[in-house]
Design a protein around this nucleic acid. Structure first.
Lengths: 213, 213
DNA sequence: TTACAATGACTGACTGGTCAGTCATAAATG
DNA sequence: CATTTATGACTGACCAGTCAGTCATTGTAA
C-alpha cells in the first residue's frame, strides 16, 4: 500500500502475493528482534505476532512451528553475507589493504549493528540447534576461513607477512573481530571499545608496523 | 556426634549440617549441568531436582528462586578464577614465558573442559542478566585485562615486544583464547582446533618468531 | 542408657499462570 | 459465489513456586 493510494477501496495496492510477502517480512523482522532480545526459549509467539501487527495464527501460515521458524530465520539472515564473502575479491593493492577493507566492513556492518547480537545468538543457541551450527559453519565459518587463508598465503608469498605458520591459523586473523562483537554485546557500557584502533594494532602486529610516509 | 561414632552405622555419617551441605553441592552441580546444556529459560527445576537426587522443594530451601539460583551459581563458579588471577605472578623468565604459561593454563583448565561452556553460557545469557555481566566484567574481565596490560607494558620496556600500541589493546592478547573457547563449543566436531599450535603462532606474531636454538 | 519430645530438613502433590499450536469463523479477493 | 487468507479464542501441556505433612536427627529427662 503505497504511493498512489486509493480513492475508493484498495487502490492498485496489493496483489495477494505482495501482501503475503510483506507480512512474512514483518514477521521475520519482529521475530528477529524478539529472539535477539530474549533468546529462543523465552520468546513468545504472541509477542512476535503483536510486534508484526499480525494474528498469531498468521505466523503458522508461513512457518511450521517455532523451532523451524527460528532456524529458517537465522539462515535467512546469514545468506546475504555469504554473498559478500564470495564477492569478487578486490585484488587491488596490498593484502593488508584488502584485509583492512574486509575487517572495516565487518566492523561497520556487523559489530556496530544489531547483527552483532545475531552472532551472539548463534553462539548462544548453537549447541541446542545443531542444524544452525552446522549451517553457520558450512556457509560462513569455513568459507570465511578459506578465503582468509588464501589471502594470508598470498601475503606470505609476496613477503608482506613474515610468519608462514599464520597460514595454518587463519582464525588468528579473525579473532579480534570476534572479540569486538562479543565486547559490544556485553561490556560496551562498562568500557567502550575502540575496535578500529584495535584493528590497526592487530594489523601492525601481523604485517609489521606501517612506515610513516 | 560424629567422629568416633559408630562402627556399625554409616561410616562417616552425616550430621544434619554436613548432609545439607552435600545436598546443596549436589544441587549446584546438577543445576550447572542443566543450565549449560539447556540455557536458563529452557532448564526445568524438576530436572535439576531429579539429577541432584532431591525433591523440588529442597531446592527452595537453598535458593530463593530460579533466577537468583542461576546468578549465584555463575558467581560461585567464577570465584575460583579470581583467585588464580590474583595469584603471585611467577616473575621468572621472559614475559613471553609468563604469558605462555598463563595461556596454557587457560587452555587446559577452561578451553579443554566443561568450563568452556560456562563461558559460552555467560556470553549467551549476559544481556538478560546484567547482574552477571557486571560481575563478570568487574571480577574477571577488567582484572584480567589489567594484569595483561601490565605484562605487556613490562615486555615493551624490556624490548620483548616492539609494538607499543599493544598496551592499549590487551584484548588482542586474549582474543585467540576466546576464539578457542567458542570454537570448542560450536565447531569442534566439524574441524578440531589445535589451540596449542595456534597459541604458539600468536605468540610468535607478538614477540617475534623464536630463534631456532 | 532408654524413652520421649522437639526440631527442621525434606518431600511431592498441588496451584495458578503461561504459552505453543489449533481450528471454527470471518474477511478479502477474483 | 467460491476460494484463499487471516483471525483470535480456545485447549492441553507444561512448569515455577508453595505448603501441609513426614520422619530422621538431636536434645532432654527419667
Amino acid at each position: 500500500m503505497s504511493a498512489v493510494a486509493d480513492v475508493a477501496g484498495a487502490g492498485a495496492v496489493s496483489r495477494r502475493a505482495d501482501r503475503a510477502a510483506e507480512r512474512r517480512a514483518a514477521i521475520v523482522q519482529a521475530a528477529m528482534d524478539e529472539f535477539i532480545a530474549r533468546g529462543f526459549a523465552a520468546t513468545r509467539l504472541d509477542d512476535i505476532a503483536k510486534r508484526a501487527g499480525v494474528a498469531k495464527g498468521t505466523i503458522y501460515l508461513h512457518f511450521k512451528d517455532k523451532e523451524s521458524m527460528f532456524e529458517e530465520l537465522i539462515r535467512t539472515a546469514i545468506v546475504p553475507f555469504v554473498g559478500r564473502l564470495a564477492a569478487p575479491p578486490p585484488v587491488g593493492g596490498s593484502v593488508r589493504d584488502m584485509v583492512e577493507g574486509l575487517a572495516r566492513m565487518f566492523l561497520q556492518e556487523i559489530a556496530g549493528t544489531r547483527r552483532a547480537d545475531l552472532v551472539r545468538l548463534i553462539i548462544a543457541e548453537g549447541p541446542r540447534f545443531p542444524a544452525i551450527a552446522d549451517f553457520y559453519y558450512r556457509e560462513v565459518v569455513s568459507r570465511g576461513l578459506a578465503a582468509m587463508r588464501a589471502l594470508i598465503q598470498l601475503a606470505v608469498t609476496r613477503g608482506e607477512i613474515r610468519e608462514p605458520k599464520l597460514v595454518q591459523h587463519p582464525q588468528l586473523m579473525i579473532a579480534p573481530m570476534m572479540v569486538a562483537v562479543i565486547w559490544k554485546s556485553l561490556f560496551e557500557r562498562h568500557a567502550p571499545l575502540d575496535a578500529e584502533a584495535m584493528l590497526q594494532t592487530h594489523l601492525d602486529l601481523i604485517f609489521g608496523a606501517r612506515r610513516p610516509t
